[in-house]
């Protein structure tokens, strides 16, 4: 399972965000994507998620069928409960509600969100909401997980709990790439890819 970027470059408004980027991402590793704002971290994630095409270069997916993106801003349904968010990907896999709900609760417990299971998304704190997004991604169990600035909008305590959660996401059947500025997250990763423009 691997993703290979070959001489990727992307131009935005006549400016190259990055050029000649060749990278290989493999399973069971946490990758940190670092660089100042505007260096193209989110753009690179968009390219890996096939949401945009690179201006140049190619991308190859080897035994990776699905890429799941957890955004910097938690995008839940305000009125639905935390458990409902996690149960949805399970229902989408064909499970009955009676099977999906206990599994969803179990996943929430593993992410330290057991007490929030029945609370609506809009009542969760920033840290809880971000961890819920990760828990939902885990219920989907994607082969490639892209996480954009997971701690950017969180206080220190919440950020720490999210970082711990991220470490637990490492899996032999998953490639995990995190775009971040947070040193604690960077420290938790196995590889660091720096997109800081070379002057």
């Amino acid at each position: 399972m691997r993703i290979e970027l070959a001489a990727i470059g992307h131009q935005f408004a006549d400016q190259w965000l990055f050029q000649g980027l060749s990278l290989t991402f493999e399973a069971d590793r946490l990758y940190a994507l670092v660089g100042p704002s505007g260096s193209g971290k989110s753009t690179l994630l968009s390219i890996i998620a096939s949401m945009i095409s690179p201006t140049e270069g190619s991308i190859t997916f080897e035994r990776v069928d699905e890429v799941f993106w957890v955004f910097q801003t938690a995008n839940g349904v305000p009125a639905r409960s935390a458990a409902d968010h996690v149960a949805l990907p399970l229902l989408a896999q064909g499970m009955d509600r009676t099977v999906a709900d206990p599994i969803a609760h179990d996943i929430l417990h593993r992410f330290g969100l057991g007490a929030t299971a029945d609370r609506p998304f809009k009542s969760l704190s920033g840290g809880e909401a971000q961890r819920l997004m990760l828990a939902r991604a885990m219920a989907r169990d994607p082969q490639c997980l892209l996480i954009d600035e997971p701690t950017a909008q969180l206080d220190r305590t919440s950020a720490a709990s999210v970082t711990t959660t991220l470490i637990n996401l490492r899996s032999s059947s998953r490639i995990t790439i995190v775009a971040t500025h947070d040193q604690s997250v960077i420290d938790a990763c196995d590889s660091v890819i720096d997109l800081t423009p070379q002057t």
Binding site: V77, A79, R80, S81, D84, L88, L91, M95
Partner: peptide, 19 residues
């Protein structure tokens, strides 16, 4: 997704106010 799950999701969306 099973039909019952689809109906259940629709019902929860309506009841919760998401709809």
């Amino acid at each position: 997704m099973k039909l019952r799950a689809i109906a259940s999701e629709a019902g929860r969306n309506v009841r919760s106010g998401a709809t």
